[in-house]
């Protein structure tokens, strides 16, 4: 067995499925970026933090926005500052290097130790964004055009990329990635996850709460079904208020607003819970 492999097993606060653990390790061993996709609230971003923690490496975060350009990740040449300095400044404008600011990718390459680089929500940027990064991620080097300096990665960073599937990612980009889809946790895994956040939760309460939670997800036609983080908040609310398993019987779900955030969803859930109607009576055309 390769000793480089099997580095990551999750952390005490972050439970991973076997498949996700393997995907992380494959990505580390092959030096390919790990692309993580999944429903909101399944812990995509937190994964990178925990990989960094488990491997005791620093984490560099790159939060992608709709205006982010690939080149921003490498470096930004602060022309405006230089222009300003040329008129009023006291600095030597001949030295371009002081106007080069390295972005997250540039920092990850230049770092003296191996780092974990999180590229968060890669699909928020322009469609061409991932393609523009291909070369740098492959070669692990780039040239600062303005100075002619070449930045070569001292250590190949572990790259974790998350996507919400808002945009289709280019094939060329996908081919280079290790892909993992975080499934919504099933009850068994969910018990372990909840246990991490609420240790020593009475067994009965755990069972009832999960039963209610999955029932809401499956039986109500919700626009935004409650996710893991909402479940954890909800259980926290139940604990605080001193409610027990017995209070989760029947049609009522206390603190429904903690689980479900959209008003229309709350109405929907309440009407189904209240037993006024079993399911939607055919297609709802009241959407205008």
């Amino acid at each position: 067995m390769n000793e480089q492999f099997d580095l990551f097993h999750g952390t005490s606060r972050y439970i991973v499925s076997d498949a996700l653990r393997d995907s992380v390790n494959v990505s580390v061993a092959l030096g390919r970026p790990l692309l993580v996709r999944g429903e909101p609230g399944t812990g995509k971003t937190v994964l990178a933090e925990n990989v960094a923690e488990a491997l005791s490496m620093p984490l560099i975060r790159w939060f992608v926005k709709s205006t982010t350009k690939a080149a921003d990740g490498l470096y930004v040449y602060d022309t405006v500052q230089r222009l300003h300095d040329s008129r009023f400044g006291d600095r030597d404008v001949g030295d371009i290097r002081q106007y080069i600011r390295f972005g997250p990718l540039g920092k990850a390459f230049r770092s003296g130790e191996r780092v974990v680089l999180l590229i968060d929500e890669v699909d928020k940027a322009d469609i061409e964004f991932p393609n523009d990064l291909l070369n740098e991620l492959d070669e692990m080097r780039f040239v600062v055009t303005e100075t002619g300096d070449e930045v070569v990665a001292v250590h190949r960073p572990i790259v974790v990329i998350t996507s919400n599937n808002e945009k289709e990612l280019p094939d060329a980009f996908l081919r280079r990635c290790v892909f993992h889809f975080i499934e919504f946790p099933g009850p068994d895994l969910m018990v372990r996850i909840v246990d991490v956040h609420h240790p020593r939760l009475p067994k009965k309460l755990m069972e009832r709460a999960l039963e209610r939670f999955y029932w809401l997800r499956e039986n109500c036609d919700l626009r935004k079904p409650p996710s893991t983080s909402e479940l954890i908040d909800w259980i926290a609310a139940l604990k605080r208020s001193g409610l027990g398993a017995g209070d989760l019987k029947g049609g009522d779900v206390p603190f429904l607003g903690t689980l479900i955030k959209k008003e229309t969803d709350i109405e929907e859930a309440q009407s189904i819970l209240g037993g006024k109607r079993k399911r939607k009576p055919g297609p709802d055309m009241s959407w205008r």
């Binding site: 393997d22 996709r37 892909f179 993992h180 889809f181």
Partner: peptide
């Protein structure tokens, strides 16, 4: 199974 899927398939 997990290995081949993570390397060969790029969308759920």
């Amino acid at each position: 199974y997990h290995l081949s899927r993570s390397l060969l398939v790029k969308t759920e």
